[in-house]
Write a protein that binds this DNA or RNA. Structure first.
Length: 574
DNA sequence: GCCGTTTTCGGCCCGACTGTTTTCAGTCG
């Protein structure tokens, strides 16, 4: 079940969309969009706040507070209901078609009664749009194509698909003669768990060779737009946008194209207050027109009176305020990771042998490394007591081959619906680390799911809750639990929550992890590797940790070995 | 509709590309 914050954020966004479609004031639209983001990102649960409390949320004033209050008490907002009555839901859906925005959607509805994607398609084929101002032959073609695209590639993909594609494109463009610098920006640089499109930035004196190379990339299936500085293409999975700017604009362009949009709006507002103008070309003095910063991102932020802000924080989620106060966190990075506490081998469902995984872990420079094959209740894995004990002996012998790495013998237990696990306490006591995860019964009622997870925390042998929500991006929804209660239990019992770094899990998600942080919970970033290459997925987990504002102190697998072992021993590590 | 280092009114982020139009509105990021 979602927090009321998320419900209200969705309603405010819908209200903004409907104002746009009905031709309302553009500034009013922006305010509702801003308020929707503020409410969604507000740390505190807004359920139970009175109007005065609601007005402490940024961008929520008297009018919006009253609407939220009305929703809290009646389950509806009457102004929203009025707009819904005027604009069928299908008209709002029309605006999800690329190139079709609120203005054209309203013209289609008002002039031709079109209220769904299907009726739009029929109308175009029937020639019913002819004579409609603003809808020429080319526009009709684009709309039909947009409808096709919507059905195929309009969806976000997890970062594990987008990142390799982006890195390949960047490498190819960087090799184009005349290309000075090249990097990906956008949500990928911010390490979002899902990616809607890839933004690539390059610098060159002449953009033409880059544009030609870009549109000729083997992955390109279609060129959407092509200008001198901007070019968009589609690939089978995602749209990719390339922007080419001059060398001396690199910092400003990188800041701009990294986003997020909400963060950029804030930085530009700050610029305006300082009588400056911020664009992808630099920071300019409004009075003289002179450019006063642009080469490096640090310079751009400095002109706004801010320290450089890590990309993962740039969501207008409090990072501007923290930067002003000099209170930005020292985020955990890849370099801080000293080990991996969730991995598999061929003994259960992994692909590599224990020795292969151990060698790869040592090659990564890990100070410690835990093998956590599945426990018996995941019946397909055919785990037995003897197999586990035999593996333990083999783990103990690994140290001689890799003296720099401390090898830990662990297991990934299965939480049954009551929070019980595969083995009795005396057997669990023999493991160095026990991860416990939900692998079945994903749809328990909220209270029961909450009790299941809290009971896992209360088991003194369980030190880490694996992939806590059980979500699989695009395939399985997160389980429904009272997360505040689960987080409180983790903090009370000293149980770490995993940030599973496998790219289709990324679980805990960043939003929940940040809420857990507020309870004083600690985290383990685990690769959940089932093969040697999967160990490298750790970086996606680090990205999530950064988006959750975690510093190394919050992440147990950045801790020195002795502190980690104390944690695994008594659950506190202090 | 919100907000205040121009503070209770008058502002509100910036620019590229496309299509249909002759100077710009709509869309997108």
């Amino acid at each position: 079940m979602e927090r009321m914050n998320d419900e209200v954020a969705a309603l405010l966004q819908e209200y903004a969309d409907l104002i746009a479609i009905t031709g309302g004031d553009a500034f009013k639209i922006r305010v509702y969009e801003k308020a929707a983001r503020s409410v969604g990102g507000f740390a505190q649960d807004i359920a139970g706040l009175d109007e005065r409390g609601l007005r402490r949320i940024p961008n929520v004033g008297a009018s919006i507070a009253a609407k939220i209050d009305e929703y809290a008490h009646t389950g509806a907002i009457h102004q929203l209901e009025e707009l819904r009555a005027r604009v069928p839901a299908g008209v709002r859906l029309l605006t999800t078609i690329p190139t079709l925005g609120p203005k054209k959607a309203m013209v289609l509805y008002r002039e031709r009664g079109i209220d769904s994607v299907e009726s739009l398609e029929r109308a175009i084929h029937a020639g019913a749009l002819q004579g409609l101002p603003g809808f020429g032959a080319r526009t009709e073609e684009n709309l039909l194509h947009g409808i096709q695209v919507l059905g195929k590639t309009g969806r976000r993909v997890h970062i594990g698909l987008a990142m390799p594609l982006a890195e390949d494109i960047v490498a190819r463009l960087a090799a184009v003669p005349g290309c000075d610098r090249c990097a990906y920006a956008g949500s990928l640089r911010r390490m979002k768990d899902t990616i809607g499109d890839i933004d690539v930035l390059a610098t060159a004196d002449d953009s033409a060779p880059l544009m030609s190379a870009f549109t000729a990339l083997p992955c390109v299936t279609e060129v959407v737009a092509r200008g001198e500085t901007k070019c968009s293409v589609r690939t089978p999975t995602l749209q990719v946008d390339l922007r080419v700017v001059r060398r001396d604009s690199w910092g400003a362009a990188l800041q701009y194209f990294t986003g997020s949009k909400a963060h950029n709006i804030r930085t530009r507002e700050i610029a305006v207050h300082r009588k400056l103008k911020l664009s992808e070309y630099g920071v300019f003095d409004v009075n003289t027109g002179a450019r006063i910063a642009s080469a490096r991102e640090e310079d751009v932020y400095a002109m706004l009176g801010l320290p450089w802000i890590p990309p993962a924080l740039r969501e207008d989620g409090g990072e501007i305020e923290a930067a002003v106060l000099g209170e930005l966190p020292r985020l955990a990075t890849d370099a801080d990771i000293r080990g991996d506490l969730h991995t598999h081998t061929r003994l259960s469902d992994g692909l590599a042998t224990l020795e292969e995984m151990a060698a790869a872990a040592a090659a990564r420079g890990y100070a410690y490394y835990a093998v956590t094959d599945h426990a018996p209740n995941l019946y397909m894995q055919r785990m037995t007591d003897d197999k586990a004990l035999d593996q333990r002996e083999r783990v103990r012998r690994l140290g001689s081959a890799h003296p720099g790495t401390r090898f830990l013998h662990g297991t990934e237990l299965n939480l049954d619906p009551d929070g019980e696990v595969d083995w009795p306490p005396e057997f669990l006591a023999g493991f160095d680390v026990c991860v416990a995860s939900v692998h079945s019964h994903f749809t328990l009622p909220r209270a029961r799911m909450t009790r299941r997870l809290v009971r896992a925390c209360e088991n003194p042998h369980i030190k880490i809750i694996g992939h806590p929500t059980g979500r699989v991006i695009g395939r399985r929804e997160p389980v429904d639990a009272d997360w505040e209660e689960v987080f409180a239990a983790c903090a009370r019992t000293g149980t770490a929550l995993e940030i599973d770094a496998f790219p289709d899990r990324l679980d805990l998600p960043a939003g929940l992890a940040r809420r857990a942080l507020g309870h004083g919970v600690v985290f383990s970033i685990g690769s959940d590797a089932h093969a040697v290459p999967h160990l490298a997925n750790m970086r996606y987990g680090v990205g999530i940790a950064q988006r959750a504002w975690l510093d190394p102190g919050h992440v147990i697998n950045t801790w020195p070995p002795d502190r980690l072992l104390r944690f695994l021993g008594d659950g506190r590590g202090r």
